[in-house]
Design a protein around this nucleic acid. Sequence first.
DNA 1: CTGAAAGCGCTAACAC
DNA 2: GTGTTAGCGCTTTCAG
Lengths: 334, 334
Amino acid sequence: MVTLKQLAKELNVSISTVSKALNNSEEIGEETVRRVKELAELYNYKPNKVALSLKNNKTKTIGVIIPNILNRFLAKVLFGIEREATKHGYNIITCISNESLEKEKEGLQLLANGSVDGFILSVAEETQMNNEIEHFKKTISQGLPIVMFDRVAHDVLCDKVIVDDFDATYNATKSLIEEGRKQIAFISNINDISVGKLRERGYNKAILETTNLEPLVLKVKKKDDHPKRIKSFFKKTKGIDGVIAADSSSGIIAINVAVGFGLKVPKDISVIGFSSKSESNHTMPKLTTIRQHAKVIGAHAAQLLINRMQNTLEDEDVKTKIVKTSLVKNKSTL
Amino acid sequence: MVTLKQLAKELNVSISTVSKALNNSEEIGEETVRRVKELAELYNYKPNKVALSLKNNKTKTIGVIIPNILNRFLAKVLFGIEREATKHGYNIITCISNESLEKEKEGLQLLANGSVDGFILSVAEETQMNNEIEHFKKTISQGLPIVMFDRVAHDVLCDKVIVDDFDATYNATKSLIEEGRKQIAFISNINDISVGKLRERGYNKAILETTNLEPLVLKVKKKDDHPKRIKSFFKKTKGIDGVIAADSSSGIIAINVAVGFGLKVPKDISVIGFSSKSESNHTMPKLTTIRQHAKVIGAHAAQLLINRMQNTLEDEDVKTKIVKTSLVKNKSTL
DNA sequence: CTGAAAGCGCTAACAC
DNA sequence: GTGTTAGCGCTTTCAG
């Protein structure tokens, strides 16, 4: 990499002249500016990012801590974050917590040494189960703002971007009730995280406020043979004619299981899931889905953080943005 | 963030004394070391990463340029890279090229200003179609090593990690032939990238070296209604009894389509795809898949790069690592 | 044993 | 118009 020093030497001028010339300072003579820029072009000079960071005490880098990159929703949010960040001239450093509290702490610590100007994160499952929030508070008190998305720690004072999980399943369940479904099941493999619980509550509310309906809940563990659990649930619980799936795969599997049992979808049974567009192609008929607009969530999170970093708002003055889900009707519902 | 300066001031010693004490230099007195370390602990002192980077002319950061984070395979490789990098004390900065040549160039440029010590990347589709490689060469000549994985540019002299794509489909096709399948189709939505072509060639070879078999190839475009295309392909081409899918969704859709036509899988038709483990759960019966060991690929790529960065090997002395696929038999084949 | 000083690459206030 | 200098935070040589 060429430095100002080298350019200055070759041009027989001082370093600061070169710097000013390249930054279009009014002070420098036209001719000099031309010569400097020409040489800089030739050598493909780029200001050293690290030196700038040190000087400005700003890295223009966002730390993103994500629980699981193989989760399509989270990957999509990351995509949204990256795009928005790039648009504003920020880079992103990614850490994967793998749903572990320890790794989440490490990631936070490791990057809080001047590597990043702030964080965007979704809370790890283990962290939510243990209700740990000290590491977040500590980071914020060090002057590094955090924006949380989707799985948030409500007791931490920071900007947040969340989904209307409760309303999403409430409305979805309602829509199945309106179809005339009587035995609507709720299937979830995300029981331990905040959004999973909200989704279950939304479902429960819709069921309980309707006469003659009873909640039918299947909680699948990560380690279970997912298709097998759902199959035996269908066998055990006769007459299921509707399914609300809380995660991205349960809906898909439920359709396959139903088809396997000879049921017609959506004639005999309706299924609504939380999958993404491309995943909803993976079933026949196509899955009716609750879309979370992951990219939008990512973009909002990035905007909130960048806004905070550039304007040094009051710590207490935090925003929570709710990104509404939409129910995309495909062929797995009436 | 606390700095050495602040610690020094508070302790009434010089900055260099503090620095040495924290780095366990022999020069400093026991008592002083104790005092310094105590205060550093108290203030949770962490050496400023940016300052260190500037000093050492090393960022301990890897730039990763990935065409598409929503592709499960690529996301998994990223996971592997991240894990291996973290293990060696490296951070990763991620850019998403979105299959665009322009964004790939930008990412490379943007990070080649001292932000990273080297790159790991998979070539964007557009780049492969245009056969552009100058930007890679330029980056390498600037002293920033590149490791390419999966979709590589063969004419660029650098370390590579690839999959045995040709052999993978060749062997998979062979195995269907051995099952006695006569009408084996090849379905792909990745016709424009290097690995897609290799996979088609592997299939073709197996078909053509068997008497009485003819290649049956369906190329799906990104924009197509994927299920619809496959459905009409099945209708038009009577008697398909085997499918080799080159990408992660074609296999899944093929099974669903076959089941929709009343075919029994695997009795009437066998399907082999390139999906990941969790995706193979999305069909009934479970999809027999070619596993690419994405995480291993990521780990290898990171190792190659770190090795090169730390040992400054000769530019010409490059390695290509081949990670063999494995055929995981599930229930969609005999 | 401790401290002063230089230097990594850059910017900006201040001289000249 | 151009140059000198200090300083961002750190390590390291060299003096004391």
